[in-house]
Simulated scan of single mutants.
Amino acid sequence: MLYETIRPLLFSLDPETAHEFSLASLHVLGRFLPAGKPAESDPVQLMGLSFPNRIGLAAGLDKNGEAIDGLARFGFGFIEIGTVTPRPQPGNPRPRMFRLPEVRGIINRMGFNNHGVEVLVANVKAAKYRGILGINIGKNFDTPIEQAADDYLACLDKVYPLASYVTVNISSPNTKNLRQLQGESELDDLLGRLKARQQQLTETHGRYVPLTLKIAPDLEPEQVTTIADALRRHRIDGVIATNTTISRDKVQGVRYAEQQGGLSGAPVFEASTAVVAQLAHALAGELPIIAAGGVLDGRAARAKLDAGAGLVQVYSGLIYRGPGLVGECVRATADHRHSAAPHPSGPARAA
């Protein structure tokens, strides 16, 4: 009810200004109020982690980990922050975020704007939150694609001691050539290097931190199969499906539809859910799927589980529905019995 009251004010602001205002408010809220607790409902064990419920925050909302404690009060079963890069970068020129309220969509071309991994690490250390925390990592825009793995490894080294799991983002459409890393040979090389470093870090820190890969919705079925094979071959711990789409099929004629960037929200629901189903078929339960894309109500969250996901993330839905969306989705997925085979890589522990 409160969000319905303030949403017109937020929607009267430029989308990025509203985003910044909301994050700043959540930062203050988290600083002065006791730590929030997740809604306890149908806990699930995946990737060696115990999730108190199946609904999480997708990366992108809190890139620098500035508002973790405020966001924790929404009742999420897990929170993912980032995408973070080794060095700070401003991202693409503004304006770079556009609302499409007629279809409950958002287009963004932020370009991995963030303060760099050192700032994110400091923010995580300062947070009171002790739940499951995913950290999403990427490459700097000016790092040649041939050297992208070096950026991912640099971030992995920094965030590993603090993360419950680490997500490798190779699917944003807003960093030049990034999606090339979804190609068979490029992906094979990247995953091989990340898995080797994960094993080294496990020995160094005495704890196993799962790795997940975030992929795009704009993939042909054979590409999804190729990615699934690579995930199994390299014993990656999970996959997030999906990022934003570059397709405009669902928003033809809508204001701002011509803007460049990734489209999220309701228009990406069908494509992202189709990728979840394709992955579920290809992986046959060998590793868990975290679904993201177009979850604006409890039915959509349930549909993601029915397609084969074990967990669900929200982001754009929060813009249109507010924090009440989290509780609705938790309730809608509470009685879903999703089984996932234990991963052979070994146990993991939350940070």
Rank of each mutant, 00 (worst) to 15 (best):
Q259E: 15
E286A: 15
P34V: 05
D157I: 06
H205M: 08
G91C: 02
Y129M: 02
L311F: 05
L287D: 11
R31N: 14
A350M: 02
Y320I: 07
A230N: 13
V330H: 03
L2H: 01
I246F: 06
L279T: 01
G262E: 03
Q313C: 03
Q252H: 14
R197V: 06
Q147S: 12
G111Q: 00
A39L: 15
E286K: 14
L211M: 05
P86W: 04
V268Q: 01
F112L: 10
L191S: 04
K176F: 08
Q180H: 09
A148F: 04
P344A: 07
I132M: 02
G65L: 05
A257T: 03
P88V: 10
P88D: 07
F51P: 10
A334C: 08
G131K: 03
T244H: 10
A271C: 11
D69N: 09
I68Q: 08
K128L: 11
G346T: 03
V239S: 12
D157L: 10
A72H: 13
R235W: 13
I170Y: 02
M1P: 03
L29H: 11
S164I: 09
A271H: 02
E203N: 13
H343C: 11
E102N: 13
P323F: 02
G75E: 07
P210I: 04
R255E: 06
T226W: 08
E184F: 06
S172I: 02
S316R: 00
L120W: 08
A216D: 11
G91S: 03
D229A: 15
I290W: 00
G298Y: 01
G206E: 04
G134Q: 10
R130M: 06
F269K: 00
S185V: 13
R248H: 06
G346Y: 05
T5P: 02
N53E: 06
P288Q: 05
K139S: 03
Q45V: 15
F32C: 10
A39R: 15
L29Y: 13
A340G: 01
E4Y: 00
R54K: 15
G75I: 07
H115L: 14
G253Q: 12
G116T: 13
H281M: 11
L194T: 08
N53D: 08
L26S: 05
G298T: 04
D189H: 10
A228T: 14
T85C: 12
P95N: 10
N169P: 04
Q147K: 12
